[in-house]
């Protein structure tokens, strides 16, 4: 059974009198442990799809099931609780909290889970080791390079062992060499830890490291792979 199942997903909003449809009737299935890249030009709707799957945006129509939960039916508070347990988010601009150290930034999602302090410490240390920043634990974001900041961002996204990790242009703000290191890190996480990854990028080279590559154009998923079997099994 796929980890992520979306069907007939449409997102519309109004800007003045103009109706904008960033995503139109999209259907998609992502299996557990998959690494999917989502390519498209600016404004193609790829970030919209990512945000819908991450549960920070709501669809106009269609269904989204992630790890067995119909997230479109959750209230705002339920969605927040759900995100804490199921989603790791990697941002293009890292979005680290400037007043917290690397350790504290990584620990932040764990504060939302029922974990003892010792357990949190263990997990943060593992995550720091996984991104190779054990010696930078007490550094504040301003004391880190861009690549290091993004690695802290990645550690923060994986530390809670979420069902799915989404990455929105994770290398968009990095130089080529650092980008490569980050992409390699993501690849390793997928391969070694079995992390399910959905990455949005406009760079074909970045997209190519994923196992599956999808493309969005003007809100339409061009290479959709309707999860026929899964949907049939659900009676959809």
């Amino acid at each position: 059974m796929p980890l992520v199942e979306i069907h007939g997903l449409t997102k519309e909003y109004h800007k003045g009198d103009q109706k904008i449809v960033p995503l139109r009737d999209a259907s998609l299935a992502i299996d557990k442990g998959d690494f999917v890249s989502l390519m498209g030009a600016s404004g193609s709707g790829k970030s919209t799809l990512l945000n819908l799957i991450a549960g920070i945006d709501r669809p106009t129509s269609g269904t989204i099931h992630v790890a067995g939960t119909d997230i479109a039916s959750l209230t705002r508070t339920q969605l927040a609780h759900w995100r804490a347990r199921n989603v790791g988010y990697i941002f293009q601009l890292y979005n680290l909290i400037p007043v917290l150290t690397a350790y504290e930034n990584i620990e932040l999602p764990l504060l939302l889970l029922p974990l003892a302090r010792a357990e949190r410490q263990k997990r943060v240390e593992i995550a720091l080791a996984a991104v190779g920043l054990t010696d930078r634990a007490d550094h504040y974001p301003r004391q880190l390079s861009g690549g290091q900041e993004q690695r802290v961002g990645i550690a923060r996204a994986i530390v809670g062992d979420p069902a799915v990790v989404v990455a929105d242009e994770p290398t968009g703000d990095l130089d080529a060499e650092t980008s490569e290191q980050i992409l390699h890190l993501l690849q390793r996480l997928n391969a070694e830890l079995g992390t399910t990854l959905l990455m949005v990028t406009h760079d074909p080279k970045s997209a190519s490291i994923a196992r599956r590559q999808l493309r969005l154009d003007k809100g339409v998923l061009l290479e959709p792979e309707p999860p026929k079997v899964a949907l049939a099994a659900r009676g959809a």
Binding site: I56, W82, A84, Y89, L93, N95, L108, L112
Partner: peptide, 14 residues
């Protein structure tokens, strides 16, 4: 604004 949105994305309620 972005920081507060990040905290919400992580799962902190409003």
């Amino acid at each position: 604004v972005r920081e507060l949105a990040t905290l919400q994305t992580i799962g902190f309620v409003r």
